[in-house]
Design a protein around this nucleic acid. Structure first.
Lengths: 342, 342
DNA sequence: TTGTAGGCGTTATCAG
DNA sequence: CTGATAACGCCTACAA
């Protein structure tokens, strides 16, 4: 019992191979009569066309690649879920390719992937999106590319993104509206342009509110729990500690919470903590964390849509973000600007 | 500038196509002289063989499938990382196929995947591992299968697993050694055999310690945060609440922690909480949670090894688990059996 | 140890 | 609208 081929189908249906192919590929110029015969035969034989043969003979492979160098399981999972869903609907296959942006073999790896699998398109997530040599390789091969949240060469490829500057501005403005004047910021990993964008939004909101920027309140993080905790320890040990800390990711926000707890600082009584949800993590484990919700899965949908519908055409799509206030929204007790919490 | 083919390589190297093929496939009977010429040509042309052509002409596709219906990002991420790593080393491609075990199309979807991509093998994770109809389809196609933590038909396919019974026993015994006599258990989702196995281990340890089993202390969960919190609320509201709660997953343990906190029960002063780490989540966000560490990534390595090295041969491999006590290990203050915490 | 012929299952081209 | 036939790039058999 070997697999059914297009030949078997044509025999059973009593038509030529080419006609079967036409039906399969939804080409025009097929009579309903023929179409029906073919469809019956396909169903009866439980026939599935060989992707390998299709790829070899045709111009398309029905496969796209998702290239990432991102250590966050939640990010990757949601990205895959979004892109994968669209691929399934379009009868495409998604090939996952993790990579290492510091590896000297990066460009070769990407080239090999495209060559071997004859990919029809590529989706990239930060920070690979901003590696010039990798981008150059893709351009050389003239393969359609959609980048998620690219930081550089914004007009070079199709892209999907949210407005990080505005999102960080929103959160900062919200904290200011609660009465905060000294707001700490834990920035993200330097590899990610989003980190700088969020810093910009933070400064922007401060300036609009007439609050001076204090570099001492900005602490570098790496997007992970540890660095969030370290940042909070440093910030809370300042002579004039912040009354609120805005972490550029939720894992760091969790670190801030843990450190505050360890140091006996009550949240939100003495300290308000805010995060930036790349990951849906807050929904799962910190249901009370106020956060910017960035719809990673939606970014995946949008990226796949751009790739599958528009192909070579360069297209751009911005998605909305949401400021989500979860759990207690009670502001910390009001305090005079510059005073430290009790 | 079109892609290089094997023909181009043979021309540049000045040898026959077949000789190139031999070198590429590491066959014997090639002189070093030829080999070197070919390798040079390959490098110079930056040649990568077409997977489609290889698959079509040969017997193998160099692709394996990873089939899962599992909502845990951390589990999936680590599984993919493990399997993906091995695939890369062996020059195989990994195709991810999420599925829905309740979908009527499940069997057809799996069949279509195997047919279309001509997969060389399949790795499955729970709970798809235990869907009889899906397994039957795989057997019918005689495709090599490795299952991770299968609950049924244990000898039907290759498999990798940890001893869930022993792991739960270890944790329960540890809690008993701290002085606990009333230990709550939050079980896992009924779809997963591991849930039942962990219950068995729990009962086993109780019995060995001469502690009677109290069904009121066992509460059903779904492996997620919400059900962990709900379980803790119910357990802590008992007339004689437990002094310790063992949750069958770390997400549920987090829920337990959150509920305890909300109810004003101090941890670990009045309540010890333990988890079961399917997900590495504890490492990231609850560095102080005591947990059973289950090496998901290692399970991925082992599963891929079995598939790639042994193929059709049925092979079984058990991996060790670890009881990890993180953060404060101070036992809750000792109390008479049956007494409730202050 | 090396080379030649044929075919894998599909799509593209070009006649009917 | 439908049908022959030649690719597609590689591997398997067989021959030298």
């Amino acid at each position: 019992m070997t697999r059914a081929t297009i030949k078997d189908v044509s025999r059973v249906a009593g038509v030529s191979i080419k006609t079967v192919s036409r039906v399969l590929n939804k080409e025009r110029y097929v009579s309903d009569d023929m179409r029906q015969k073919v469809e019956e035969a396909v169903a009866r034989l439980n026939y599935h066309p060989s992707l390998a043969a299709r790829t070899l003979a045709g111009r398309r492979s029905f496969q796209i690649g998702l290239i990432h160098d991102n250590p966050s399981p939640y990010y990757i999972f949601n990205m895959q879920a979004g892109v994968g869903q669209r691929c399934r609907e379009a009868n495409f296959r998604m090939i996952i390719q993790p990579c290492d942006i510091n590896s000297p073999g990066l460009v070769d790896d990407i080239g090999a992937l495209i060559d071997q699998a004859q990919l029809d398109g590529i989706i990239m997530t930060p920070p690979v999106t901003d590696v010039g040599t990798a981008l150059a390789e893709l351009f050389r091969r003239k393969i359609p590319v959609v980048r998620v949240q690219p930081g550089t060469d914004l007009t070079a490829t199709s892209a999907v993104y949210i407005d990080n500057v505005q999102a960080a501005d929103d959160m900062t403005a919200y904290l200011i509206s609660l009465g905060h004047r000294r707001i700490g910021l834990v920035t993200g990993h330097a590899n990610y342009f989003a980190s700088g964008q969020r810093l910009t939004g933070y400064r922007q909101a401060l300036q609009r509110a007439g609050i001076g920027f204090d570099a001492a309140l900005v602490f570098p993080g790496q997007f992970d729990f540890q660095s969030g905790a370290a940042a909070a320890e440093a910030l809370l040990a300042l002579p004039e500690p912040p009354t609120s800390i805005f972490a550029s990711s939720d894992e760091m926000a969790a670190g801030v919470l843990a450190a505050a707890h360890r140091m006996g600082v009550s949240v939100p009584g003495q300290l308000s903590v805010a995060g930036f949800d790349d990951t849906d993590l807050a929904q799962v484990v910190w249901p009370s964390l106020t956060t910017i919700r960035q719809p990673i899965r939606d970014l995946g949908y949008a990226a796949a849509d751009l790739l599958l519908e528009f192909g070579e055409t360069i297209e751009r799509r911005q998605l909305p973000h949401e400021l989500i206030v979860r759990g207690s929204t009670a502001p910390p007790r009001p305090m005079a600007p510059g005073s430290s919490p009790g």
